[in-house]
């Protein structure tokens, strides 16, 4: 085998090994690298009340209730599993926060199982459309 073929084999083997190592490491990280827990994740993972955590999912259409005081709101977060989480929040939500859209809530669970959010982030989906081409009401299909 000529020297440059040897070097080529070495480089290819090295790249392959590193790629496999990285993929294994990422697989090991998959739970901890998640930015938030979806309602489906909460079936298998119990989060004690009061512990700081992020949950994320879809704001269920029709679930958003704004309190008369103008700064409190509550809504229900769901995903493609039957499980849902009721969330309450006091403050100004981001512009893109709306029903049928993705949301990430930072906060903790109250003892009664309601999630009290200290901060809300709106998740944007992958769809880009001009206003005149939106026929139906906004609905995000994918959770991610």
């Amino acid at each position: 085998m000529r020297a440059k073929n040897q070097r080529m084999t070495l480089v290819l083997l090295g790249m392959g090994a590193m790629l496999i190592a990285a993929l294994l490491a990422m697989w090991g990280l998959r739970d901890r690298a998640a930015l938030f827990l979806s309602p489906g994740d909460l079936r298998t993972r119990s989060v004690p009340a009061g512990q700081a955590v992020r949950i994320g999912g879809m704001v269920r259409p029709g679930s958003l209730v704004r309190a008369p005081d103008g700064v409190s709101l509550s809504f229900v977060v769901g995903d493609d599993t039957p499980r849902t989480v009721p969330v309450s929040f006091r403050g100004v939500p981001p512009d893109l926060f709306r029903e049928g859209s993705g949301v990430i809530a930072e906060g903790s669970f109250a003892p009664d199982g309601r999630f009290v959010a200290a901060e809300l982030l709106a998740k944007h989906d992958e769809n880009y459309k001009p206003p005149d081409k939106v026929a139906a009401a906004h609905r995000t299909e994918t959770l991610r």
Partner: peptide
């Protein structure tokens, strides 16, 4: 590949590829 697949492997704030 980690950058590319990050939005598919994990729950992220960033949206998936359009």
């Amino acid at each position: 590949p980690v950058i590319h697949f990050s939005v598919i492997w994990w729950n992220t704030l960033h949206q998936p590829p359009s």
